[in-house]
Nucleic acid binder design. Structure first.
Lengths: 181, 181
DNA sequence: TGCTGTGGCTAACACCGTTAGCTACTGTGG
DNA sequence: CCACAGTAGCTAACGGTGTTAGCCACAGCA
C-alpha cells in the first residue's frame, strides 16, 4: 500500500517544453516530434532546448513519467472498484481504453529500451501494481500484463488480420487469466 | 492444411543485399542498418541500392518475409510434435527461443506497421496458424499470440523488473491458456 | 560596479534516406 | 557488324535529423 509517487517539479520553460511535446505527440504522432518543431512551438530555436534538457530522449523520458503516473492512477482506480465482471476484466478494459485514447503516447511509454534509471524511484513498481492486485500473484501478474501489452501494441500496429473480432479476443484472454474456483 | 508458402526468388545482386542486411541486423542491430553501410558491405555505393529496391523499407520487407517463413516452419514443427507438456507449452518455447536467437530480426518483423500488402499472399496466415492449432479456437489463438509477443518484446526491451523469474511467468501464461479438462 | 550564471541566438557538423543525372557495359535485332 | 536499349554502377546534391560550438544579452548578487 505505497503512496502515489510524485514527479520532480520542473521550472517554467522546461514545463512548457514537455507540454508542447505532448501536444505534438498526441495530435501528430512520434514522427512529428522533432527538436526543431518542438522548439518552434515553444517559440525558441532548436539548440536552445538543450539549455533545459540534455537530449531529446530526456524530454521523452519526462513525458513517459507523466504518462506512467496518469495511467497508473486509472489502473489503480479500475482494480479498486471492479465491476461485476471482476478485477481482471476491469483492469484490461481500463488499460485498453487508456492506450487507445492516446496511441502515440502509449507507444512512447512502452516501446524500446526503458529509461528506468531516469524515472522517479518507485514509479514503475507503483504503476504496475494493479496487475498484481488483480491476479494476486506476481507471475500471473506479469503474464497478464504481457497479454495486455501484446494485445494493445498489435492492435495499434494493425497486425491482427483485418476483420478480427478483437472484443472476443480480449474476452478469451480475460477468461484465461481469471481464476476459476 | 495449406502448403508452405514460397518466396519470390530474387536475382543475384538483390539476394546479396538482403543477405548482407540480415548479417548487419543480426550482428549490430537495427541502428547499424543504414543504406550507406549496407551498400558498403555489398561493395557498391548507397544510391546503387535503389536500382534493386525502391526504398529501405522494401529491403526490410524482404527480410521480414524470410523471417516469417523460417519462424513459421519452427512453429509448425513445434505444434506438430508437441512434447509431454502439450502443444501450448511447446509452441511458446519455440516462439521464445526463435525470438531470443535473433532479437533485432524479431523486432523488425513484429514492430511498427505491418507491410501486409507487400508480403507473399498467404504467408501471414500460414505463419500464425500454429497458434490456432495449439488452441483450437481463433480468439484464444490471438490471445495466446498476444501473450507470447508481449512477453518477448517486454523481455527484449528489458521492461520487466530486474531479477524477475520469467521462467515462472511463461509457465503461468502457459497454464492460463491451457484448457483444463 | 563588476562578475557570474542563465537562456537565448547563429552557424555548423555528421549522419540519414533519397533523387538527379551521367556513364559504362551487356545483350539483342536488323 | 553495328546500333540501340536496358541494366547497374557512379558522383553530387537535397532536405531532413539530433546535436555541438561559440557568442551575446540580461538578471541577480557581492
Amino acid at each position: 500500500m505505497t503512496a502515489t509517487p510524485e514527479l520532480t517539479a520542473r521550472s517554467g520553460r522546461a514545463a512548457d517544453i514537455v507540454a508542447a511535446a505532448r501536444i505534438i505527440l498526441e495530435k501528430e504522432g512520434a514522427d512529428a516530434l522533432t527538436m526543431r518543431r518542438l522548439a518552434a512551438d515553444v517559440g525558441i530555436q532548436a539548440p536552445s532546448l538543450y539549455k533545459h534538457f540534455p537530449t531529446k530522449r530526456a524530454v521523452e523520458t519526462a513525458i513517459i513519467a507523466e504518462v506512467l503516473l496518469e495511467v497508473g492512477e486509472i489502473l489503480h482506480a479500475a482494480v479498486a472498484a471492479p465491476g461485476r465482471a471482476g478485477p481482471v476484466r476491469s483492469l484490461l478494459d481500463a488499460y485498453h481504453d487508456a492506450a487507445k485514447a492516446n496511441p502515440a503516447m502509449y507507444r512512447l511509454a512502452t516501446s524500446g529500451r526503458f529509461p528506468r534509471e531516469d524515472l522517479p524511484p518507485g514509479l514503475e513498481d507503483w504503476a504496475g501494481r494493479p496487475f498484481f492486485i488483480a491476479t494476486g500473484e506476481p507471475w500471473k501478474a506479469q503474464a497478464l500484463f504481457s497479454f495486455a501489452h501484446g494485445m494493445v501494441i498489435l492492435e495499434l500496429d494493425e497486425r491482427f488480420p483485418p476483420g478480427s473480432d478483437l472484443g472476443r479476443t480480449w474476452k478469451a484472454g480475460a477468461a484465461a487469466f481469471t481464476s476459476r474456483s
